[in-house]
Amino acid sequence: MAKNFDEWNRPLKELEDGIDKLKDFAKKETNPAKKTDLESKIDELEKRRDNYIEVMFQRLGPWEKVLVARAPKRPYTLDYISAIFTDFVELQGDRRGFTDNAIIGGPAMLDGKPVMVVGHQKGRNIQERQFRNFGMAKPEGYRKAIRLFDMAERFRMPVISFVDTPAADPGVESESRGISEAIAAGMFKMFELTVPTVAIVIGEGGSGGAIGIAASNRVLMLEHSVYSVIPPEGCAAILWRMPERGADAATALKLTAEHALQLGIIDEIVKEPKGGAHRDPLEASQIVKSAITRHLAELTPLAPGEIKNERYEKFRKMGIFEVA
């Protein structure tokens, strides 16, 4: 089992590197016959690549989905924001003494209408990752989100949440400042809102860290994102005391979008471009945008009280049990 995306993606990467090399040769080749020969080889390899992607991505297993959801080149919240919205101004601070860089947010325009955007943000290189705390928000992240939710309610703006976190930050600082209370308060606030709320899991939906900003009227998941009650490695650590058995835990946890839809947890699976959102972030953004606007269009005509009740009833039904 591959441990990370790069390891898992190596065969495809090697194939693509080969294609790039051949293209280089073809560019420099002066002999027309040899050039045609190279070009047909490139053609053949590209077909093989497309076929490989087609087949691989049709049947991604749960652990492979985890790896793809964590792919370093996968579009992050800020990538979606810049492609989907205009006039985004990032707002900061929990007004209680702290600031957080793993949850970002602020007002923006969506097709000319004001919305409030909130989301987890991961980093791509070492410095960015540290700055974003690997997408693990501290209490101040949730408290900032709550401020923005309040503002959205005051100014009648729909709230769009982008979910992409391995988990909330579990460290000493977070415990000291009440990470549990911050997450609970985030959900609590979301249930008070009378404006429409839409959440989309774009990468990792990591347990409490995710639901703290995703108790929304509509919850969507990208095709290859995951949503889980516990990180697979943490689950494996508890179940078998073997964190390295994350792949087995991923299977047991049923953390894929398909399972979430079957269990009645999400409203829609948003298709990704061929080979995953990271292969075409702009197309992915357009697909995400149309899904968000479609759901907002359904919610916007509802009266404020109805919007709140609809949300309550949606979550009220969740759970599967028997009545004896």
């Binding site: 609970a184 959900m187 609590f188 249930f191 008070e192 347990s207 409490g208 995710a210 639901i211 108790a215 949503y227 889980s228 009650v229 516990i230 689950c235 508890i238 179940l239 946890l253 049923k254 953390l255 399972h259 979430a260 269990l263 947890i265 949300r311 309550y312 979550f315 009220r316 969740m318 759970g319 599967i320």
Partner: peptide, 19 residues
């Protein structure tokens, strides 16, 4: 853990009731 996402959603459901 054994009820996966359904358990995670109980967090939201119970919080909604408290609200």
């Amino acid at each position: 853990m054994q009820e996966g996402l359904l358990s995670l959603m109980q967090m939201a459901k119970t919080t909604a009731a408290a609200a």
